[in-house]
Design a protein around this nucleic acid. Structure first.
Lengths: 129, 129
DNA sequence: CTAACTGTATTATTTAATATATTACAGTTA
DNA sequence: TAACTGTAATATATTAAATAATACAGTTAG
């Protein structure tokens, strides 16, 4: 279901948050669709239910999912709207990284070719993770 | 001297490593130039000498500096060569981020304008951190 | 109704990384 | 010799992350 790196410096619950976000943003999981239950997913990934709970709580707090006690967690209809702020965050990251790259002597053309490359992989559906 | 975020999730010693790298790569500190002593810098930044030592050890291990016991730490002449592998790492980061951006619906033109923006800030010497 | 699911909350404990505190030893230099 | 340098070692404190173990309540299929 998910590939987690238990040895990563990044906490498990954060990795989970990111994975779920990606599935939602890329519409693998659609609006109002039910997420795996806390206990089921914990068993599936052989990690503690509390860790799943923490990730889901965070996702709910960020507006990506909602929960109905007794029923489950579901993809929030507004989740796709969240991509706007994600794009904004990405703009900043990109600007920072591109500046750094230019500063280190990477040429404008180098970056342009990277865009071409990225475009192909995205259109071709090639995973880049 | 450095601006450190003591509350950051990123360890102090790692922040230090990055800051020193930047100063070396951007040639603020040149080859064979002496770095601040472990104890002096510890006092300056009001952090523990062991933490400085750890950062310097890491920088030495990565080839950015060398040390002469009893004398001090100095910028390694090969340090600038390190930028090559840094550029390679950056290529990968950029490719990943650009793909993600396109995937989220950011247009090619958006990214191009970011490059323009970055180019100006780099040429103008505007800091992007 | 009941069993087996769901979410949620709480408390205690373990683990690992980070940072500090302290002390010590040895080379360098004015 | 005094005051710097780097280096090493040990003990301690702090914190975040993750686990373990329960408990309580809503939901739902049989």
């Amino acid at each position: 279901m998910f590939e987690l790196d238990l040895r990563s410096r990044q906490p498990i619950y954060e990795q989970l948050v990111e994975k779920v976000k990606e599935l939602i943003i890329h519409e693998v999981w659609k609006s109002d669709e039910q997420l795996p239950s806390v206990r089921w997913l914990a068993k599936e990934l052989t990690i503690n239910p509390n860790t799943i709970q923490k990730a889901y709580r965070e996702l709910e707090h960020q507006g990506y999912i909602y929960s109905i006690p007794g029923k489950g967690h579901f993809v929030a209809p507004q989740a796709k709207t969240m991509t706007r702020e994600k794009v904004e965050t990405m703009r900043n990251e990109l600007l920072r990284l591109i500046s750094e790259a230019l500063y280190l002597g990477m040429s404008k053309e180098d970056i342009l070719s990277l865009i071409e490359l990225a475009e192909q992989s995205v259109k071709g559906g090639i995973k880049h993770d």
